[in-house]
């Protein structure tokens, strides 16, 4: 949803207010009358000013409050967007348990099958397998990143 400048300005105004709220209990530095809250509050003040400017500008220009993004009208594209976000969330939740080879392969395969189309299933399988093995070898072996093996711990190289 593309919102008007008035609404996006209001969002930043709210954010600035939140900064003031969450810094209210910060202690001052000993012997000074300012502390850890000073810098964030200075930024928030500037942000509030600019947010207000956006609100005024948005109200004056008088356009619609919100226009949906073009792609929101196409269920296919909405699903594309949701799938990318879902893959990231699921990977965060389960990659430790599943391990990188399984989670990475599944993530890539699902994305390829959906985005490129199931007709290209062979390409999807090959690309997923090559990428996961390649990344495991490069990050796991060459760069020594402890990518989790998860369920495949017993066959870890």
């Amino acid at each position: 949803m593309k919102v008007s400048d008035a609404i996006s300005g209001a969002v930043f105004l709210l954010l600035a207010a939140a900064v003031f709220w969450f810094t209210k209990d910060f202690r001052h530095m000993p012997g000074q009358n300012y502390g850890a809250s000073f810098f964030p509050r200075t930024i928030a003040t500037c942000m509030a000013g600019l947010g207000l400017l956006l609100v005024i500008r948005g109200l004056r220009s008088g356009g619609p409050w919100a226009v949906p993004f073009d792609w929101l009208r196409s269920p296919r594209h909405v699903a594309n967007f949701a799938l990318v976000v879902a893959v990231l969330v699921l990977y965060i939740l389960f990659s430790d348990w599943l391990g990188f080879p399984i989670a990475g392969f599944a993530a890539l395969l699902v994305l390829l099958l959906w985005l490129r189309g199931p007709a290209h299933w062979l390409q999807a399988l090959v690309v997923s397998a090559v990428c996961v093995v390649g990344m495991q070898a490069f990050f796991g072996e060459v760069l020594r990143v402890p990518l989790p093996w998860g369920l495949l711990q017993s066959v870890a190289w």
């Binding site: 965060i92 430790d96 993530a107 996961v132 990143v145």
Partner: peptide, 26 residues
């Protein structure tokens, strides 16, 4: 549409590699 999923996985692994936690992916 072949490239984007690969880049996405690379982003995830690259991010993980910095602190070795999935928090970075968040």
């Amino acid at each position: 549409m072949v490239l984007m999923p690969v880049i996405l996985l690379f982003c995830m692994v690259g991010t993980f590699a910095i602190n070795n936690t999935v928090f970075g992916i968040g």
